[in-house]
Computed example of a mutant assay.
Amino acid sequence: MAESDLTNSISIGTTQADPPSPGKSARGSEDNLKSLVKLVRVLECFTTSSRALTLAEICAKTAIPRSTTHRLLASLREVGFLEQDRERDRYRLGLKLFELGNTALANFDLSHVARPMVEGLRRVSGHAVHLAVFDGYRAVVVHRADPSPEFSAAGTSTFIENTPAHCTSVGKAILAWQPEDVVQNVIARGLERFTDTTLDTEEKLRAELEIIRLRGYSIDEAEHQPGIRCIGAPVRNQNGDVFAGLSITGPAWQLTAEKVPELSKVVIYHADQISRSLGFTSA
């Protein structure tokens, strides 16, 4: 099946017939849009902690009827967006998405512009560095530099990974400067609890975002992963809008609370350098 035919294959209740009337054409476009939205909801079920899911689990996460979900999964599998294991009871993201992600990343100016600053922050801080962009709900990590020699020979890696915006330093560094409606949308989708320190209520999150705006950087105090501390800072485009974030990550015993004030200055400096490279000039 050609990928351009994907939405047609999942549109419920549509058939090939004579050229549709304007009214039918509009309804068809609306049906296709609804199908695409459902496709995205299915794909968003998969995370680094939920790599393989059953049909029942996907239905529970999306609230889409079982029969419709089954047809969506079949179409996604046919074009390579999903894969099914040998027992045929679990689904995983397919390699086609990896290929498309790499293509998008290769054409993404931020990744190229920021690479020297990401690598420089890795060398100066001695910690793993993450560069992420905001998709409206989550922070999407598009570049990582890791100080561990076993990670890779060069110490850097380019990949795509979604991370929660409400409980990671890179996510909160972005979220703190978003418009009110965006913050509210993130809250409305639910503040999932990952650890005992996760900011899982609106009151806690809003108070934290206010602190971040005042001091200029964010901290993740083991809110997403136990024993991990992170420091993040916002990255701005040429218009001054915060659309990305930069962070360093390390074990709490190594990246201690006493080191945060000095390291935050280093993170902010490198984030500002990326912003300037993108055309931003501070007032």
Rank of each mutant, 00 (worst) to 15 (best):
M1S: 13
A2M: 14
S4L: 12
T7V: 10
N8S: 15
N8M: 15
N8H: 15
S9I: 08
I12Q: 05
T14C: 11
T15C: 08
D18H: 06
P20S: 07
S21M: 09
K24E: 14
K24S: 09
S25N: 11
A26I: 10
A26M: 06
R27G: 06
G28P: 03
S29I: 06
E30S: 04
N32K: 09
K34M: 09
S35K: 06
V40P: 02
V42C: 06
F46K: 09
T48Q: 08
S49R: 13
S50K: 15
L53N: 05
L55C: 10
I58H: 03
A63N: 13
I64S: 01
I64K: 12
R66E: 15
R66I: 10
S67V: 14
R71H: 12
R71Q: 14
L72R: 07
L72C: 11
L73R: 04
A74I: 14
L76M: 10
R77M: 13
E78P: 00
G80F: 11
F81T: 00
F81Q: 00
L82A: 13
R86L: 10
R88Y: 14
Y91A: 08
G94S: 13
F98P: 00
E99R: 03
N102G: 10
N102F: 11
A104L: 14
L105F: 06
N107E: 13
F108A: 02
L110V: 04
V113P: 00
A114Q: 07
R115P: 04
M117D: 01
V118E: 02
V118D: 00
V118T: 04
E119S: 14
R122K: 14
R123W: 04
S125R: 01
A128I: 07
L131Y: 01
F134V: 01
F134D: 03
G136W: 00
R144E: 07
A145S: 10
P147A: 04
S148E: 10
S148R: 15
P149Y: 06
S152M: 11
S152D: 09
A153T: 15
A154K: 12
N162V: 09
N162I: 05
P164C: 08
H166Y: 02
C167P: 02
C167E: 06
S169H: 05
V170H: 07
V182R: 12
V183I: 12
Q184R: 08
I187V: 12
A188Y: 05
L191R: 04
D196P: 00
T197S: 14
D200V: 01
T201K: 04
R206I: 12
A207V: 05
R213T: 11
Y217W: 13
S218W: 00
S218K: 01
A222N: 03
Q225V: 15
R229H: 02
I231Q: 03
A233L: 09
A233H: 02
P234N: 05
V235M: 03
R236D: 02
N239W: 14
A244M: 03
T249A: 14
W253N: 11
A257E: 13
E258D: 15
P261K: 11
V267H: 02
H270M: 05
D272I: 07
D272C: 09
R276G: 09
G279A: 03
G279L: 01
